Simulated assay, not measured.
Amino acid sequence: MVDFIMGLGLALPITSAVGVATVTGVGQGVSEQQRQNADSSNQVRMLKFHLDVRVETKSGSKNRRRGELQDAIVTLHDDKLWLEAKDPETGQPKNPARHPFTGFYVAYPDTDRDHTRGLVSTISRDPPVLNWIYVNKDTLECKYSSRSGSIAHHVGSFDWTTEENENSRITLDEYEGFVAVDEGEKKGWALYFDMEDDGLKDYKKGRTVCEVSLVRRLLETQDLNKWGLKEEGNIGFKKTREAEHFEEITYDETKAILQIADIWA
């Protein structure tokens, strides 16, 4: 069991006692995830990845800061997702204090929604706690929180444009609507989702808005098999004797892992 948890690549911290609501949420999530596990394409969605930024350059742009977005990386701090400069040699944020998005897809447990594919990410290196990624329903900011903090907002379904990793871009509700908003030189570029496809008409408040694409970049430390999946280290599966065979983890194992991760509370 410990080996499996460590196989996630996350030294997850032990949290306080989990209440009945959390146990219920875990049961819902496990049931939904087990249904998905039969599909190899969903197995691949559990690989961990960073998010790089692509932006179409426009000649004659008057915004001198627009160039900062090209080949930036998505980071998490102050409860929001940001687009920041990336070190071309390491592939990590130039500012070592910033934590890069490091996440994967997993079913979001909510009985009031149809099946929803959620997106989670670690939010820090130490401790490397997992949170849900969501779009705030009132501001359209891309943010992160626990299940209780995200459930009232837009939590998915998240997906991708293609299974080809180098060309695979993140979508929400089958739409690439991500935009960067210039929140000033002291804060930088924040990530929003243009829900109405109108350039954030009612939300930008005079700020510069730029369309961006979020490109998946798989973590290089993951060894892949024919599914594009590591033999261990991806939530929902554990290593078996046959290199190309996976069995679902048990309910009790999954419940314990997700309680420790504290993303179902």
Rank of each mutant, 00 (worst) to 15 (best):
D3G: 05
F4D: 03
G9N: 11
P13S: 13
P13Q: 13
I14G: 05
I14N: 13
V18S: 15
V18R: 15
V23M: 02
V23E: 05
T24A: 10
G25P: 04
G25E: 14
G27P: 01
G27I: 04
G29F: 00
V30N: 11
V30E: 14
V30Q: 12
Q33V: 07
Q36H: 02
N37T: 15
D39P: 01
D39F: 14
D39R: 10
S41L: 11
L47E: 10
S61V: 12
K62S: 06
R65P: 04
R66F: 13
Q70W: 00
D71G: 01
I73W: 01
T75S: 11
L81C: 12
L81V: 02
L81Q: 07
L81T: 05
E84Q: 14
K86H: 09
D87E: 10
D87G: 11
P88L: 03
P88S: 04
E89L: 12
Q92E: 15
P93G: 09
P93D: 09
P93A: 06
N95C: 07
P96W: 01
A97S: 15
R98E: 15
T102P: 00
G103I: 04
F104K: 02
Y105S: 05
V106Y: 12
A107Y: 05
P109W: 13
P109D: 13
T111W: 03
D112P: 01
H115Y: 11
R117V: 03
G118R: 02
V120P: 00
V120N: 04
T122C: 08
I123E: 07
I123H: 07
S124L: 03
P127G: 03
P128Q: 11
L130S: 03
W132L: 09
Y134S: 08
Y134G: 08
V135A: 15
N136C: 14
K137C: 12
D138H: 13
L140K: 12
S145E: 13
R147T: 00
S148R: 10
H154D: 13
V155C: 07
S157E: 04
S157V: 01
F158S: 06
F158E: 05
W160S: 15
T162H: 09
E163Y: 08
E166V: 08
N167L: 10
S168V: 04
T171M: 15
E176L: 05
V179F: 07
A180M: 05
V181Q: 10
G184T: 03
G184V: 01
E185W: 12
K186A: 10
K187I: 14
W189R: 14
A190F: 07
M195V: 06
D197S: 11
D198K: 04
K201G: 01
K201A: 09
Y203H: 11
K205M: 14
T208D: 12
C210A: 11
S213Y: 06
R216P: 01
R216W: 04
E220D: 12
E220L: 09
Q222Y: 13
Q222W: 12
N225Q: 10
W227M: 08
L229Q: 13
L229I: 14
F237Q: 11
K238M: 01
E242L: 11
A243G: 04
E244H: 15
E253A: 03
T254A: 15
K255G: 05
K255V: 09
I257A: 09
Q259F: 00
D262G: 07
D262S: 12
I263K: 00
I263R: 02
